[in-house]
């Protein structure tokens, strides 16, 4: 093998489809870890307004005095934003490649074993991206405020998911379900991309992906639905 060109070949491989999806896998894992932490935060709602608001307040104090006020949160935001951008960029490149790779479509297509979850990865991803924008404007920046603005995150949330804003809740629920589906395939895909798949583990990896995806879906649905149904006021 012509090893003299290996350096060049290696740098070319840094832009390969495998490298791209590895980037998606790594950023995806970061985002999943974030979601787990986020869900934990959400569930504080059941401990009452004080606990919930304290939790969001503490996030800003995390790392003090080593970091300035809000420093940790900003680091996290930068990491998350970078992850989302890399994830989306790699997805877009691979999507385009896939489109180019099959210029003439089949007249008849049939899914052999693929799941609905893998089928909806790309459009689901777009829906999730749109949702994240809305979600940040609503509950982080306080720009959009169905039910009225407030300095208390708890109040913003409770106000936003009141039954009269059923469409907010509906959008939220649909998006969370989309996240769940995205994760069902995404977690499996990330693990296998990063080299964890063995035939003997294939089932376990799929179970892990299903369990995490389901737990996050349920966890994220509990809060808004509890508000809408009046369990949390």
């Amino acid at each position: 093998m012509a090893n003299s060109t290996l350096t060049k070949q290696r740098s070319e491989a840094l832009g390969s489809t495998v490298a791209l999806k590895s980037a998606m896998a790594v950023t995806g894992v970061i985002l999943v870890l974030f979601l787990i932490a986020h869900m934990y935060g959400n569930l504080n709602v059941f401990a009452g307004q004080q606990a919930f608001d304290d939790y969001s307040h503490h996030l800003r104090e995390l790392g003090e005095p080593m970091l300035p006020h809000g420093g940790f949160l900003w680091i996290m935001r930068v990491v998350l934003l970078a992850s989302v951008l890399v994830h989306a960029y790699a997805a877009a490149v691979l999507w385009r490649r896939a489109g180019r790779a099959r210029p003439v479509r089949y007249q008849v297509t049939k899914r052999v074993q693929r799941s609905y979850s893998s089928y909806t990865m790309r459009y689901g991803g777009i829906l999730i991206a749109l949702f994240v924008v809305f979600h940040v404007l609503h509950l982080t920046t306080n720009t959009i405020h169905p039910g009225g603005a407030s300095d208390s995150p708890y109040e913003r949330m409770v106000a936003g998911f009141q039954p009269e804003f059923w469409y907010v809740t509906l959008f939220y629920v649909a998006s969370v379900v989309a996240v769940g589906l995205h994760l069902r395939h995404g977690i499996w895909s990330a693990l296998t991309t990063l080299g964890a798949n063995r035939q003997s583990r294939q089932r376990s990896l799929n179970i892990i992906a299903t369990v995490i995806a389901a737990a996050l879906t349920v966890g994220f649905l509990l809060t808004p639905l509890s508000v809408t149904l009046g369990l949390v006021e």
């Binding site: 093998m1 090893n3 290996l6 070949q9 290696r10 070319e12 491989a13 390969s16 489809t17 495998v18 791209l20 999806k21 691979l94 490649r97 896939a98 180019r100 790779a101 099959r102 899914r111 052999v112 074993q113 693929r114 893998s118 990865m121 395939h185 499996w188 895909s189 296998t192 991309t193």
Partner: peptide
């Protein structure tokens, strides 16, 4: 082993195959 995988993946991409997304079909 190392050179093989690097060169084969590069060639795979050059041939205009799509990327794998672990769907399993």
């Amino acid at each position: 082993r190392e050179a093989r995988v690097v060169q084969m993946v590069n060639q795979h991409d050059e041939e205009d195959f799509g990327g794998c997304t672990n769907i399993g079909e």
